[in-house]
């Protein structure tokens, strides 16, 4: 039941964002609201088994508004800055062709899968690194485009991201 509710609320919120401005009940018309509720219930019923497989008590801690504020601070601060640097870095390497690639393993020490997913996506979008695979104990295999030494510390590969991922999800 919890899985159904979570899937239902997510689909309904998404539907309401997509149809905002269609009528006069706040922002929505009555037919859009009815269609939204029916379609969200349908999609929640179809996907609740999949959602339920990954749902635990810890999943609900994302409702804490403090995490959202930290996440927004992260997304518009260090993440955006590193994304900009990453693009200038790729542009530089495209033009000069200076690469020194390799796949290294880093131990993240994170406690849940949401944090690992956030970290892996952040790594992919930041300078010179691309996450390739996950290993035992939530370690990550990262492809570096310009490797400085053969056994780098986690901080060399992904900067302060582990700290941020821990702050947001734990």
């Amino acid at each position: 039941m919890a899985a159904f509710t979570v899937a239902f609320v997510f689909s309904l919120v998404l539907y309401l964002i997509l149809t905002a401005g269609s009528g006069s009940i706040f922002l929505w018309s009555s037919s859009e609201l009815a269609a939204g509720i029916v379609l969200s219930a349908l999609s929640a019923a179809l996907t609740s088994r999949l959602t339920g497989r990954h749902l635990s008590f810890h999943s609900f801690t994302f409702l804490n508004p403090m995490r959202w504020i930290i996440f927004a601070a992260y997304a518009f601060g260090p993440f955006l800055w590193n994304l900009t640097k990453a693009n200038l870095d790729v542009a530089y390497r495209v033009i000069t062709g200076r690469i020194n690639p390799g796949i290294v393993k880093i131990e993240t020490g994170l406690k849940n899968d949401g944090g690992l997913a956030l970290l892996a996506n952040s790594i992919t979008l930041t300078p010179g690194t691309l996450s390739v695979d996950t290993g035992p104990g939530r370690s990550l295999y990262v492809h570096c485009i310009n490797l400085k030494n053969r056994k780098p510390e986690p901080e060399e590969v992904c900067g302060s991201f582990i700290k941020w991922a821990r702050r947001i999800t734990e």
């Binding site: 994304l83 990453a86 693009n87 062709g97 979008l125 492809h143």
Partner: peptide, 18 residues
Amino acid sequence: RFPDVYTRMHGATKCTTF
């Protein structure tokens, strides 16, 4: 420009997203 699939993915993810 890049030689293999991994280095190409670098360009194909960061640049297209940004």
